[in-house]
Nucleic acid binder design. Structure first.
Lengths: 228, 228
DNA sequence: CTACTTTGTGTCAAATTAACGCAAACAGAT
DNA sequence: ATCTGTTTGCGTTAATTTGACACAAAGTAG
């Protein structure tokens, strides 16, 4: 028996906070459990880490098999260790959060349709395990992150307008930002490229379309919002 | 057999990056391994998580028993999952970093004196496992953190001078900061209280002594240094 | 053609920052 | 005592950034 195997090891789960944005709402993907514990309660999707998997492997396994998704922004959030967080015994959770564009996926038409559902983070059901803590940490991280890091576009279409990005920021940060100052900061940072065309079919003046600038490295930018 | 126990679980180690600052150098505590693998190589202190322990419990166990330390700034850094990071088998590492004032502890006089040593982060030996990756991540985190969060004082004495804090920042960030602008930002943030007295025994004009302000909540501050 | 809405562009005072001047307070040498 | 060199504390000022607006352009609806 190897030295590091002399004790039983805690189980290791990877739990996912999948954020999706649509209709001016930041939503999170929840799974309705069919087994105990927390049967019929909503929880974050997750799985136990297999011996040969990396965390990202497990993330992709969950998102692929359960949700039919793949390939998007994924970042490690935090590891949760409260001894009683799982009533079955000792389970450590490594939490990741993902940013996806729901319109690119067919969640509802998946093979476990009734089990998986988007919830607005403003209207959450009671969650099982310590998943509310994990979700809160993820929201906090996301809010802090978009202030200086251009991750917002992960939640939008490839082409998006400035008002759309602006509304995304206001929704996530739950505050109002002067649209003209916002525009100036974002454009000064060089992280967008104008696609030349405009979004048609809206009520009023057609807004310009932009794409995320994958070529050059964006400058620093900083949206000044006092969180906490 | 419980559901979550149907597979063998990876071992779970807690590894510690202990930062200490003295003589204008940011140092990290390393342990010389006495066993394989990486026998006689320097590594981060760490231990396997016991079934009933929290991460912080393990941290304190390591710092207490191996280093005779206790009670200081400790923050979770990241969890490392590379499958081959430990040649003995699958071991996940949850990394924490600590900020301590070396003058408050007797590392060298500990019970494993020859095994434990401070190294300047500028003159590191080759490290075992993936501990260089962990250390790099910790340095990066610390550098980003002190720009907006008053954690610097954790590395200094209870009473410290403005030039000391200034040199600490310059050392950690490896850049020069105008001392007069630095002073203004720090003092404006209200996170220091003047202790009234001055540091005696130095060559030139005696600098004022300050303490960290535990009473009131400091204002936001932001040192503008372009990392990366 | 008018009213209304939304988007794009610009302006300007206030706040913040970066860069630097200078005197106060010490030690040590003359 | 006085001078020199150094470090610390306290300002000043110009440049930059920010926050709060005004206003025209481009659309729809009546």
């Amino acid at each position: 028996m190897k030295a590091f195997d002399q004790y039983r090891n805690p189980a290791l789960a990877v739990d996912l906070v999948v954020f999706g944005y649509y209709e001016n709402s930041l939503n999170v993907l929840l799974l309705n459990r069919k087994e105990e514990p927390f049967k019929n309660r909503w929880t974050l999707p997750g799985a136990f880490l297999q011996m040969e998997e990396t965390f990202l492997d497990t993330c992709n396994r969950v998102l692929n098999t359960k949700l039919g998704m793949d390939n998007f922004f994924l970042e490690q959030l935090y590891s949760f260790d409260a001894p009683e967080r799982d009533p079955r015994g000792r389970v450590i959770a490594v939490a990741y959060y993902a940013l996806i564009n729901p319109s690119k996926f067919e969640i509802v038409a998946g093979n476990m349709a009734n089990d998986v559902q988007w919830f607005s983070i403003d209207e959450l059901p009671k969650l099982g395990f310590d998943h509310k803590d994990i979700l809160d940490a993820a929201v906090k991280r996301l809010r802090a992150k978009i202030l200086y890091n251009p991750v917002g576009f992960e939640l939008l279409n490839d082409e998006f307008t400035m008002p759309e990005l602006h509304r995304l920021y206001e929704t996530i940060l739950q505050t109002s930002i002067d649209r003209r100052n916002f525009r100036r900061k974002i454009l000064d940072s060089d992280y967008l490229v104008s696609s030349g065309s405009k979004r048609e079919g809206l009520q009023n003046r057609p807004p310009d379309l932009y794409q995320f600038n994958k070529a050059l490295k964006p400058n620093k930018f900083q949206i000044n919002i006092d969180l906490s």
